[in-house]
């Protein structure tokens, strides 16, 4: 190998590693603080590694604060949204892809148009409507606005349009009703699309702050991002360790899931980008 090539490789590898460390730094710092004893957090010298592993911060975050509650709320909201999204989107996508009926093109055009609308745009009227209906400060307020998913309908439709229609004809001959075809045939077939969609949806809503900030004022309903802000604003600077432990706990589910299923995650989130 030529010396030039070798040098070039070393240089680019060095830069890539340096960049990766910079990207990693906030994570490392968060974990480091979460494991540091109180006195080391407030020391004035830079010290990445704690002198000893201090579990007390995690214990405190899990037992003396509402972090478990936030995690629970996050799970309820995220799974609630996902279940309803799929329940609504898959039958619609199946009909758009495999059935012929009046208004099909109109509804598909409607779906495409809905893709153009960012959620922020609908926030004020939905807030107004929910206030009228008296469902602000409920789980429903956090779940309902995300049930209609133009992106989900679009994704599933594209997938199901590629399935040969003979398969659905066979199911009709075998005696399945259209509803049964949706759930016994179409949905299992669309599982790859469903996985990508689920990853996208779960990540988006676990991490969302905008709507929970608007729709709820009850700390008992706080989702993880909303919750950690409550925690931070209450502790006023002297509980950094537990705060960082809480941040780590909230970030952990998705980060661990990502590390376990990198390919699927990258795919799911990249697909989601098409939504804009």
């Amino acid at each position: 190998m030529r010396l030039g090539t070798l040098l070039g490789r070393c240089l680019s590898l060095g830069l890539l590693v340096l960049g990766a460390l910079a990207v990693l730094l906030p994570f490392l710092w968060m974990i480091s603080l979460a494991f540091k004893p109180q006195d080391e957090i407030f020391s004035a010298t830079v010290q990445l590694l704690p002198s000893r592993i201090e579990w007390a911060n995690f214990v405190k975050a899990l037992t003396e604060t509402d972090v478990p509650r936030y995690l629970f709320n996050g799970a309820v909201v995220v799974l609630g949204i996902l279940v309803f999204q799929i329940l609504f989107a898959v039958p619609c996508a199946y009909a758009l892809a495999q059935r012929r009926f009046k208004g099909r093109t109109v509804i598909f055009a409607l779906t495409l148009a809905a893709l153009l609308v960012p959620f922020h745009v609908t926030a004020i009227p939905i807030f107004l409507g929910f206030a009228q209906a008296g469902i602000l400060n409920t789980y429903w307020a956090l779940i309902l606005p995300f049930v209609p998913t133009a992106f989900g309908i679009f994704l599933f439709r594209q997938f199901l349009a590629q399935v040969p229609s003979e398969l659905f004809d066979a199911a009709r001959v075998d005696g399945l009703s259209e509803t049964e075809i949706v759930w016994r045939i179409a949905f299992p077939l669309a599982l790859p699309a469903a996985t990508a969609f689920a990853i996208f949806s779960i990540t988006a809503h676990w991490n969302d702050l905008f709507w929970p900030l608007i729709a709820t004022t009850d700390p008992n309903l706080a989702t993880p991002p909303r919750g950690i802000l409550y925690f931070r604003d209450e502790e006023s600077g002297d509980d950094v360790g537990p705060l960082m432990a809480a941040a780590a706990l909230i970030t952990a589910p998705l980060v661990i899931a990502f590390l376990l299923a990198q390919r699927k995650f990258t795919q799911g989130l990249a697909t989601g980008g098409l939504k804009g």
Binding site: P164, E166, L167, D169, R172, V173, G175
Partner: peptide, 15 residues
Amino acid sequence: HERNVAMVFQSYALY
């Protein structure tokens, strides 16, 4: 289904 006919498809259409 109500006609109780059986059908075999060109692409087999197996699930």
